[in-house]
């Protein structure tokens, strides 16, 4: 451990020296003068009718990058499910290991009452964030994660079995695939209309309304489905692993 710390100390000093030399010449914070961001801030509302410029960048101007981002999420969900899947040799080993305590419903009424109050608020807030992604801060990624916490609250309040009943893994898997495919298919609308992939070909509507900004809102919906179900699928992988251990 001591040799490790000495080695870390040497590396940290070297890192700090290089960092100091590099950051010294950088412009101080607040003196931004990049042209690209200013152009986007100026054209987002007139061109795309999206009052949230960050959403316009993510789902329109750089929409292809977000498609890649969505596939990163998809692949990692598949990878976690593959790592935590039921192993063939799992039955024969770990015989001597003490069974893990299964998380059953808590005895506390306070936790249950809090959960009952939290679930509807979270559902509405998540849906609001997804549907207003082109108007105000939020969007499919943020709203999807908010929605994915709903089954987690249920897990805390009612235990693992109820969790698996309200968030069936088959449904989560289907939603994840559907969301990711939906993004690519909406991108193909542009191709079908004789324009480019992911080009905004849907009517743009009035800026500031929920159903505005064309494909930006539609893509937010598919991302919301993909991210929400993707995170539920991630949590399910861990919960199922826990249940399998408890059954032994």
């Amino acid at each position: 451990m001591k040799a490790r710390l000495v080695l870390f100390g040497i590396g940290a000093l070297g890192f700090a020296a290089v960092w100091f030399a590099g950051a010294r010449k950088l412009d101080p914070m607040g003196s931004y003068h990049g042209a690209y961001g200013e152009i986007l801030n100026a054209v987002s509302v007139p061109e795309r009718h999206s009052t949230n410029v960050v959403s316009a960048v993510n789902f329109d101007y750089r929409g292809l990058d977000t498609l890649g981002e969505e596939f990163i999420l998809y692949i990692s969900v598949v990878a976690v499910a593959a790592i935590l899947r039921k192993q063939k040799d799992e039955e024969e080993e770990d015989e001597d290991e003490a069974p893990t305590q299964l998380r059953e419903a808590p005895d506390s009424d306070a936790v249950r009452l809090f959960g009952v109050g939290l679930v509807p608020v979270t559902v509405i807030f998540g849906l609001y964030m997804i549907s207003h992604g082109s108007v105000s801060p939020g969007g499919g990624f943020q709203g999807g994660v908010v929605l994915a916490t709903v089954p987690l609250v249920v897990y805390l309040c009612a235990g693992a079995k109820t969790y698996l009943r309200i968030a069936p893994p088959a449904l989560a898997k289907g939603g994840e695939g559907l969301g990711a495919a939906g993004y690519a298919l909406i991108g193909c609308l542009g191709v079908l209309a004789g324009k480019k992939f992911l080009e905004n070909v849907v009517p743009l509507g009035t800026p500031g309304e929920a159903w505005s900004a064309g494909t930006i809102t539609l893509l937010n919906l598919t991302v919301g489905v993909a991210v929400g179900t993707g995170f539920v699928e991630l949590i399910s992988s861990f919960v199922e692993e826990l249940l399998r251990k408890a059954e032994k």
Partner: peptide, 29 residues
């Protein structure tokens, strides 16, 4: 830090007039 501009607001134009100085939306994305 690199996208921040002194005195600028968040790049959300829902309730501010066009042309308001906002920070870089690209780094936020």
């Amino acid at each position: 830090a690199i996208g921040y501009k002194a005195g600028a607001v968040a790049p959300i134009y829902a309730d501010m007039p066009a042309g308001t100085v906002a920070v870089d939306p690209v780094v936020q994305a």
